[in-house]
Amino acid sequence: MAAQGATASRSGLRSALPLLAPAYLWLTVAIFLPLSAMVFFSFMTELPLSGKPWAFTLGNYAAFFSQSLYLTLLLASLRLGLVVTLWCIVIGYPAAYVLAKVLKGRSREAIFLLVILPFWSNGLVRIFSWAMVLREGGILDTALNAVLPFKINIDLMYSYPAVIIGLVHSYVPYMVLTCYLTLQAIDDSLIEAGRSLGASRLQVLKRVIIPLSMPGLVAGAALIFVPVVGSFMEPRILGGRTGTFYGTVIEDQFVAVFNWPLGAALSFILLAVVLIILAVASPVLRRAA
């Protein structure tokens, strides 16, 4: 029986190979090779492309530990990731619930489209639109002053809140989509069963719906947290001087300072930290899910 099973799975793999090969070839060429090159760069003193003499060094990694600035920025970025993820849950989960459980038919499709829309617009366009809304004398400022009887000054541009607003806007669809999928899979009769047993809507939410939608929350959180920690576009454009984060420092190394080895080393430290966080969190999250 066992031998038969093994043969079956081996022949299954052979027939699956033509289907797997394109994806894995592409991943090898497009990700593994450049990434390996980056690992290589991160141990160099100089970029070999510039023609200058170079040697192997651990100095780029040592730089992270010798200068407290990098650690400070990394912690700030991790905090940013956490705050943005939390806001995405606060905003995205109720929306996903309404989409999955309250709306039906046409109206669901229409609202869904509005949620997906940010995905379809260019990231830079999105961020600059926010800049127009948030700056002093911008759309938000003008609109509020037109409505309110007293004069207020709204200038959120180049501030921490502006960075949060931009990032939440970019990433909240992930949370809505992952939560929508798990919420939609929850049978309505479970909610009715809970209520027939005397549970209020809030008790049903806490004891049945949230535990059952945990996989979606976890997936959404992972999809949001990881890129936000390394983000640089929103912090730079919306954050201005306050928008210096770990991601922007890495970007500087590649784009402005041309210190690719240091940029690469900082990137891999970030990757390691994120992987450690996910590894530590995964048993807890898996139990919750």
Binding site: E192, A193, L197, G198, S200, R207, V208
Partner: peptide, 19 residues
């Protein structure tokens, strides 16, 4: 509302909480 009626209900698909 249903939660205040003190009824017991058995559903067609049982509706047991899988978690």
């Amino acid at each position: 509302p249903v939660e205040k009626r003190r009824i017991g209900m058995v559903f067609q698909n049982y509706a047991l909480f899988p978690n």
